[in-house]
């Protein structure tokens, strides 16, 4: 059982991305960059905060140090908080997959809230290019809490 909403939890590609963290290790040979400690990613209206974030690059060796490396996927962990416009989500872990343009948040309690409406499940899948988000309950019931006032919106 899942519910899906359309929102603006997405990664646009025409705005610069700012990433902040306490530590960054760029591992050339493993083609990955590991951000650890108070990781915060901001792009346009979207903010993501987590304990750590690992960026996996496509291509080999020195592509990272030349900066033109192509990001394949991003893994985030250690309590993930995502907010974009009216939508917010919290989870334990998350994975952004650039090829399929989707990101998936997982955890014991994945909470997606939009204004006063709160949806709780265990897996949130968002299609980045459309912003469509689907929350799965993985067996349990999706706990939906709708705010009556939100019904009146056109």
């Amino acid at each position: 059982q899942s519910t899906s909403t359309r929102g603006d939890l997405r990664l646009s590609n025409d705005q610069p991305i700012q990433i902040e963290s306490d530590q960054l290790d760029v591992k050339d040979q493993e083609a990955k960059a590991i951000f650890t400690g108070n990781v915060k990613v901001v792009q346009g209206g979207m903010t993501m905060q987590s304990g750590n974030m690992t960026v996996h690059y496509r291509g080999q060796g020195t592509s990272i140090s030349s900066g033109s490396a192509d990001i394949q996927s991003i893994e985030v962990g250690g309590k993930v908080f995502l907010s974009s416009g009216t939508q917010q989500a919290t989870a334990d872990d998350g994975r952004f997959d650039m090829d399929s343009q989707t990101f998936v948040l997982t955890g014991d309690r994945v909470v997606l809230s939009e204004g006063q409406n709160v949806f709780v499940g265990c897996k949130l899948t968002v299609h980045m290019n459309t912003g469509e988000a689907r929350l799965d309950s993985c067996g349990g019931r999706v706990n939906i809490q709708l705010d009556p006032k939100s019904q009146k919106k056109p």
């Binding site: 990433i19 902040e20 960054l24 990001i71």
Partner: peptide
């Protein structure tokens, strides 16, 4: 092969870099 930054790390990725990738 290993470049480690520590202390108030700030990374700015320009959209141009993402787009031409």
């Amino acid at each position: 092969h290993l470049i480690s930054f520590a202390g108030e790390v700030r990374v700015n990725i320009d959209p141009v870099a993402i787009r031409n990738n």
